[in-house]
């Protein structure tokens, strides 16, 4: 038995073990923590499978931001109903177990079916790699997301915007979350923010820029930006505000506008977007999406319609 197979088996066991802990967790908080760990393990698995784009997205979105959102929701939940913090939730667990078993069965069926299939010469994945050199892009994932399946990406951005609007409707508007850190004047915290926020912005821009040729892109870059936003919110540099500024609203819809133009404009000329608009247009659309993703996720974490500067 070689070492690679051992690592794969170990990762698989860790993944299933963590998933069982998430589903059967007696306390909600434990389940959330295990879910974050599950996201990180999942990122390792994607990296091991060579899907670095997915690994980045899963580490930033699946583990980082989803975890932060769930913790924020948990904090809100125990504020509304303190009994939830210690509740055993066995009724929920029974339902979760049923859903988990069904989902696992579905994944196993799909996986076994996919493994039984032979690679077809005309399959979409093969076609992508054949057509990729003509686009000038080096990253097939970016090619699929923006050049060939742009409509899917447009719908994804609309889903993100709709999810935010839905969360706004559900959220109690009068409820303003307090920052978790009681005192913002800790020297260490200021150092952390001063070091991490510029670095996160740099990493986001790098991921955006490199996304055409290597793993990266608007979704990964946007989630890194949102992580910086969450840090600013947690340390009180940004505060939730009852109203949103015009700039913020612009930021929220920028992504839909960017990818929408990229997808719809070429229909006027009848030529594929890359042949007509070039790589600059892709980068512009991706930048707009990055800003939107960052704004949306930060606002979701804030649980408020807008943001204001907390330093003044």
């Amino acid at each position: 038995m070689n070492v690679g197979l051992l690592i794969d088996l170990l990762l698989g066991l860790i993944l299933v073990g963590l998933a069982v802990q998430v589903v059967l967790g007696r306390q909600l908080f434990r389940s959330i923590v295990f879910y974050v760990a599950f996201g990180l393990a999942m990122a390792l698995v994607w990296a091991r499978l060579g899907a670095v784009d997915l690994a980045l997205a899963d580490a930033a979105l699946g583990a980082g931001l989803t975890g932060a959102l769930m913790l924020a929701a948990f904090r809100r939940l125990i504020k509304l109903d303190p009994a939830q913090a210690v509740t055993s939730g066995s009724a929920h667990t029974a339902l979760a177990l049923l859903i988990a078993v069904l989902a696992a069965g579905m994944v196993a069926t799909i996986g076994l079916t996919a493994m039984a299939l032979e690679s077809q010469p005309g399959a979409a994945g093969v076609a992508v790699f054949e057509a990729l050199p003509a686009t000038g892009l080096g990253n097939p994932v970016t090619g699929v997301l923006l050049a060939w399946r742009g409509f899917d990406t447009l719908v994804e951005m609309v889903v993100l915007l709709t999810a935010f609007l839905g969360a706004r409707v559900v959220a109690d508007e009068g409820w303003a979350p307090r920052s978790t850190v009681a005192s913002f004047d800790l020297p260490l915290l200021r150092t952390l923010v001063a070091a991490i926020v510029p670095l996160a912005s740099l990493i986001a821009l790098y991921l955006l820029w490199i996304g055409s040729d290597q793993p990266g892109g608007a979704f990964q870059a946007g989630s890194v930006l949102a992580a910086a936003g969450v840090l600013l919110l947690l340390t009180g540099q940004l505060l939730p505000a009852p109203t949103s500024s015009a700039w913020l609203r612009l930021g929220l819809v920028l992504g839909v506008a960017g990818i929408g133009l990229l997808v719809l404009l070429p229909m006027l000329s009848g030529r594929p977007p890359l042949a007509w608009l070039g790589r600059g247009a892709l980068l512009l659309a991706e930048s707009m999406m990055m800003v939107s993703i960052g704004c949306t996720l930060t606002l979701m974490f804030a649980g408020a319609p807008g943001l204001k500067d907390g330093t003044r």
């Binding site: 850190v181 150092t191 952390l192």
Partner: peptide, 20 residues
């Protein structure tokens, strides 16, 4: 260095919270 920074600050915050 980034891991060092993150673990230092989070350990500090957890310790403060625990003391509180």
């Amino acid at each position: 260095l980034l891991a060092l920074l993150a673990s230092t600050v989070s350990a500090h915050l957890i310790a403060r919270h625990a003391r509180g």
